[in-house]
C-alpha cells in the first residue's frame, strides 16, 4: 500500500522528461554564454540583420543536421550528406534548365527547362534514392554505417562529377533563386524552411510512434527486436530521411549560390555531425533530440559569425570548433557518469 501511495502523486507531475533534455540543455547554456560575450564585445552582433544572417548561414547545415539526428539516434552515422547534396543540386539545376548536365551542362536555354517543381522533386528524389541504397546496405547487408556512407561520400561525389562533366550549372531565374536568397518580411526563406522542418522533425521524434521506435532501436536494438519492432526497416528509414534532407539542401544551396557545383558541400558532413553531437545527441544512439541539434548548429553558426565580426582568422575558428566538439562530448560524459 505504501508503495502505491508513493508512486501515485509523482507519476503525473513529472511528465516533463528532464532527462531527455539534460545534455541538450548544456549546449543551450553554452550558446547563451557565447552570445552574451559576443554582444558585449561587438554590439553589431545583436542587430536583427546580423542574427538573421547567422540563421541563414546555418540553415543548410541545419537541415542536414535534422536528418543526421535521426541517423545518430539509431547509433548510425551518415558521412555522405555533403556529396549527395552536390549531386542533388546539379540534378535540380539540370532539370530546371532542361537537358541533363551530362549532355548540355550550363548551355541549355532557360526556356527549355522542366519547371521548378520538377527540379525540386528531382533533387529530393536523388536524395531519397541515395539514402535508400545506403540504408539497404546498412540494414540488410549489415555493413557498418561508417563504411557504407564513407563509400557514399566518395561515390556520390564521383557521380556529381560525372553528371556535371566538371562544369558548374549557373545563373538561374528569380523564381529559382527565391528559395535560397529571397526574404519573406525580414526573414530569409531558407531560415523559414529550416525552422519549419525543425518543428516537424521535433514533433515526429517526440510525439509519434515512429519517433519512439527510432529511440528504442538506438537505445537497445536487441530489446527493440524482442519487443516486436522491425529494427531493419527503422534503420533503413533514417538513411532515407538524411537522403531527403541532402536532396532538399542540394537544391537550396544551388539556389542560394545561383550555381550548382560538383564541389558543393565538401566537408559539410563534419560540421553537421559536430552540431548534432554538440547538441547532446549521443553517438551511441538512443539519446538526444532535435532541440539540442538546433542549438548545436546555432552554436557553430554564432561562433563563426561572432569571430568573423571580431576579425578572427577562419583558421582559428576551425580550431575552436574542434575544441568545442571534444569539450561538449566530455561534458556530456561527465554528466552521465554523475547520474549513475
Amino acid at each position: 500500500m505504501t508503495a502505491k501511495q508513493a508512486a501515485k502523486p509523482s507519476t503525473f507531475t513529472s511528465s516533463f522528461d528532464w532527462h531527455a533534455y539534460a545534455s541538450q540543455l548544456g549546449a543551450l547554456g553554452v550558446l547563451i554564454v557565447i552570445c552574451v560575450i559576443f554582444a558585449l564585445i561587438e554590439p553589431a552582433f545583436l542587430s536583427s540583420r546580423n542574427l538573421f544572417n547567422v540563421l541563414r548561414q546555418v540553415s543548410i547545415y541545419g537541415l542536414l543536421a535534422l536528418g543526421m539526428t535521426f541517423v545518430i539516434l539509431t547509433g548510425g552515422i551518415d558521412l555522405s550528406v555533403g556529396s549527395l547534396l552536390a549531386l542533388s543540386g546539379l540534378v535540380a539545376a539540370a532539370v530546371y534548365k532542361g537537358g541533363t548536365g551530362l549532355l548540355s551542362a550550363g548551355t541549355a536555354g532557360q526556356a527549355e527547362g522542366f519547371g521548378l517543381p520538377a527540379a525540386i522533386g528531382a533533387a529530393i528524389a536523388v536524395g531519397l534514392i541515395g539514402g535508400l541504397l545506403q540504408g539497404t546496405a546498412v540494414s540488410r547487408l549489415k555493413v557498418p554505417p561508417f563504411i557504407v556512407t564513407l563509400g557514399g561520400l566518395t561515390a556520390f561525389r564521383g557521380a556529381a562529377l560525372l553528371f556535371s562533366g566538371g562544369q558548374p550549372i549557373s545563373t538561374f531565374t528569380d523564381e529559382y533563386k527565391f528559395w535560397g536568397q529571397g526574404m519573406i518580411g525580414p526573414v530569409p526563406v531558407p531560415v523559414i524552411i529550416f525552422l519549419s522542418f525543425a518543428v516537424l522533425a521535433f514533433i515526429v521524434l517526440r510525439y509519434t510512434r515512429y519517433g519512439r521506435r527510432v529511440y528504442a532501436v538506438g537505445g537497445n536494438p536487441e530489446a527493440a527486436r524482442l519487443s516486436g519492432l522491425n529494427v531493419q526497416n527503422i534503420t533503413l528509414s533514417v538513411y532515407v530521411i538524411t537522403g531527403f534532407f541532402a536532396g532538399l539542401s542540394g537544391f537550396l544551396l544551388s539556389s542560394r549560390l545561383n550555381s550548382a557545383e560538383q564541389v558543393a558541400g565538401v566537408g559539410y558532413e563534419l560540421t553537421v555531425i559536430a552540431g548534432v553531437v554538440i547538441g547532446g545527441t549521443s553517438l551511441f544512439g538512443g539519446e538526444g533530440g532535435i532541440f539540442g541539434t538546433v542549438i548545436g548548429i546555432l552554436l557553430i553558426g554564432v561562433l563563426s559569425n561572432g569571430l568573423t565580426l571580431m576579425n578572427v582568422s577562419p583558421y582559428y575558428q576551425q580550431i575552436l570548433v574542434g575544441l568545442i566538439i571534444v569539450f561538449a562530448v566530455y561534458l556530456d560524459q561527465l554528466i552521465k557518469r554523475r547520474r549513475r
Binding site: H19, A20, R209, R213, A216, N220, A223, G286, E287
Partner: peptide, 21 residues
C-alpha cells in the same frame, strides 16, 4: 538489462514499447 529494457529510456516508454500500435 541487455535484452529486456532500454535502460536509458523512461519507464513509460519501455512499458508501452510492444503495445504502441
Amino acid at each position: 538489462k541487455g535484452q529486456g529494457l532500454i535502460l536509458g529510456l523512461a519507464v513509460r516508454i519501455n512499458m508501452t514499447l510492444a503495445h504502441l500500435d
